[in-house]
Amino acid sequence: MDNREHLLIVSPSPHQHCGLTTEGMMASVLLALLPACGVAVYLFGLPALRTLSICVVTAVIVEVLWQKASGKQPSFRDGSAALTGLLVAFNLPPSSPWWLALLGSLVAIAVGKQVFGGLGHNLFNPALVARVVLLVSFPSLMTRWSAPQPGRLLADAVTAATPLGEMKSALWLSGRLPPGAGGSLTDYLLGNMAGSLGEVSFVALLAGALYLLWRRVISWHIPVSYLATVTILSGLFWLADPTRFAHPGVHLLTGGLMLGACFMATDLVTSPLTGRGMLLYGCGCGLLTLSIRLFGSYPEGVAFSILFMNATTPLIDRYLVPRPFGSPRTWGTP
């Protein structure tokens, strides 16, 4: 009887653990973003490294201070604060002033995360909340981009326009895309273009996303539906009028689309729970992103689209509830 006592133990589900923990998931995402960090520092030098460091350190400090002020045991071991700080840095121009990077992490942790109750309770992606707040408050600083200077750590910052910004300006002035608007897709693929720290390396971000898919930290539903929606719709517009609408490859490889689709829209806290819900969510993000890019005043729409869809997540989860196993429709009966 002693050998079978464990058979009488009753405990709540889940009875089998998938092996993923919060700490492990955060560590996996941080590891997946390391290639993009390396490319950003290679392209933009020490200013990029400074921005990354300030954002991460500030996010961790603000998290600990908030927990201490709230009477909780201060802890940052789950890695969520460091990840939020890194994503804030990825949404900033490479040569951002130190105080802008500090303010971005402060807003992300205090306003985007802790006000809602901390990890697991926030309605919106904290890093995107910080980006939008900074963009509205300091538009000139948040759109002051640096031209990449590969391998020159101490290179002087030279301002340049992003591919999407250049196209938007040309459309405002002449109603047509500038000559060579498609640019070099190879440069776009490798990240050799102006933009924020997380916008410039499709290959590095893709490598990180594939790693997360392999580790099953994220599922394919949101990235695929998001990227496919933007690609298909932009392709239809391009076929209709290539003088006003850019090639779908430009939309896919430039801006924050890859970062948003694979690392921000897939946030487990702010995205739907079911596969059908994720597909709807991803398609909504893609539709809104392309609508803002093509018809809005901003050249980029990833942040706004993801935040808007974050707000719809509770509704999506409510109306796309999985059917219980054994329900009539499961068996094919009316």
Rank of each mutant, 00 (worst) to 15 (best):
I232F: 15
Y226D: 11
F304C: 12
T274V: 11
L189N: 02
L205H: 05
V158P: 01
V200S: 05
L280D: 00
Y188N: 01
S219V: 06
V217M: 05
A261E: 08
S234F: 09
G277P: 10
G182W: 03
L173D: 15
R215M: 06
G255T: 07
L257D: 01
G286I: 11
L253I: 09
L259A: 06
V269Y: 07
I232K: 04
T229E: 10
H247K: 07
A261Q: 08
M264C: 01
T159Q: 14
L239N: 00
L177R: 03
V200E: 07
L173A: 15
G183Q: 13
A246L: 04
A246H: 02
G286V: 13
A240Y: 15
I218A: 08
S305F: 09
L185K: 07
V302R: 11
H221I: 03
N192V: 13
T243P: 01
Y211V: 04
M167F: 04
P223Q: 08
G256A: 14
G256K: 08
R244F: 07
G183Y: 12
A207H: 03
V203K: 03
V217R: 01
L197I: 02
R293L: 10
P223T: 13
V230C: 12
T159P: 00
T270E: 11
W214E: 04
V217H: 05
L279N: 02
T162N: 13
E199C: 09
Y281H: 12
C262Y: 01
M193Y: 13
M264T: 01
T289C: 14
S201F: 08
A228G: 04
L197E: 01
E199N: 07
E166D: 13
G165V: 06
